[in-house]
Computed example of a mutant assay.
Amino acid sequence: MKAVKRSALSVSRTTGRFTSGARILPSFLVAGAQRCGTTSLYRALAQHPLLLKPVLHKGVHYFDAGYQRGLSWYRGHFPLRVGAALLARRHGTGPLAFESSPYYLFHPLAGERIAADLPGVKLIVLVRDPVERACSAHSHELARGFETESNFEYAVELETGRLAGAEESLRARPYSAHHSHRHHAYLARGRYAEQLDRLEPLFGRDRILVLDSHRFFAEPEQAYDRVLEFLGVPRLGCPEFERHNGRPRPKPLPDSVRRSLRDHFEVYDSRLVRWLGGDPSWRR
């Protein structure tokens, strides 16, 4: 079954590459953060008739891990212009293609590449309690076999050494990969303000929407409407809101560890106020 699926994906990619000139590029991206509800938001948005997801899968990962493949390869993942034109005639407004690759927010070169290849694109970023995000990411990477250290606290201690020189390496060799940068950045990925500060000069404040994922899950209709307003798309129908890619909660952190991590993130969380329009929900 896996071989059949791989073969079908290969055929679809080849077809997409050959017809790339007839396909549309994304108008917006769900850029991250990892383990913050990006899959749940993606699936809710994909139910909208004017928001067109990639042909093959949620995340194309072109601007982080696949940039050497070229823009024609990337374009080949999206719907044909003729289908988009039919939707425009039916609804009186043009559809928007999109994808969701949560490593885009953290990769040091992704923002520059997106700004160069997709002028005018908008970005959606979700953020959650960075302590919870770190625990969730550790469980996620363990389950996928990308992490070998089962003790979360020790994995956090290892992070500084694992990530030492990672950004410099990725910039020096733009088409390379760094395993720990992608899979072991438990604290670094939760310093959201650092990543948003890198994107703001490239896109401008008005083209980046930051959502508190705790509020998204608590009041999904309101968050969904904010996204549609940000994109300039009318509401058509009512999507089903479900949690996706959730994992069982790991054992509770010792209070001392949780306090230490909350103290670590405090200065970064405070810098989210201007992006969220108020304090992050986990700091209230």
Rank of each mutant, 00 (worst) to 15 (best):
A177L: 12
G111W: 11
E242V: 03
Y186N: 06
V60G: 08
R173M: 05
L118E: 05
L87S: 01
L170R: 07
L87I: 00
N151K: 14
H184C: 07
S10K: 11
Y192I: 01
H91T: 00
E149N: 12
L170E: 11
S256L: 07
E147C: 04
A188N: 09
R144H: 12
R69N: 15
T39G: 09
A143H: 11
D212L: 01
W275I: 01
F98A: 00
G190P: 01
S12D: 14
T93R: 08
T160P: 00
E242D: 12
L158Q: 14
Y103G: 03
K2Q: 11
P26C: 08
R75Y: 07
G246C: 09
E147T: 03
T93F: 03
V55M: 10
A218C: 05
F203E: 05
H57K: 13
S12W: 15
H138S: 05
G111L: 09
S256N: 09
A44S: 15
G76Y: 11
F78Y: 08
R13E: 15
W282D: 06
S10W: 15
H244C: 00
L187V: 14
Y104V: 12
S20P: 02
P95C: 08
W282L: 07
P252I: 00
E229W: 07
S213M: 10
Q195D: 13
V210G: 11
L253I: 07
H181G: 01
A193K: 02
E149K: 10
G232F: 04
F18C: 10
S180E: 07
D225M: 09
P49W: 14
D129C: 02
S72T: 13
A44F: 11
P79N: 14
K53F: 02
W73Q: 07
A223S: 15
F230Q: 03
L276C: 10
L228H: 10
L109N: 12
A177H: 15
R17C: 06
L199S: 05
L25S: 14
F216K: 03
K5H: 13
G59E: 15
G190E: 05
P250E: 08
Y154V: 10
V156W: 04
D197F: 10
R171P: 01
A65Y: 10
F18G: 07
F152D: 04
R6K: 11
D225I: 05
E200W: 08
Y62N: 05
A22N: 03
L228I: 03
P174D: 09
Y42L: 01
Y186Q: 06
F28C: 02
P95Q: 13
A193L: 02
R258M: 06
E266K: 14
E159Q: 08
E99Q: 11
L211I: 11
P108A: 01
G92P: 00
V30Q: 12
R113T: 09
T38P: 15
A115F: 13
H107S: 13
S139G: 01
E221G: 07
R75E: 05
E200R: 11
Y42S: 08
R81A: 01
A85P: 00
S72W: 14
A84P: 05
G190F: 02
F63R: 07
R205I: 03
D197L: 04
V233L: 01
I124W: 04
A8E: 14
K122M: 04
H181V: 00
V121R: 03
V55P: 00
G161A: 06
P130R: 01
G32D: 00
G66C: 02
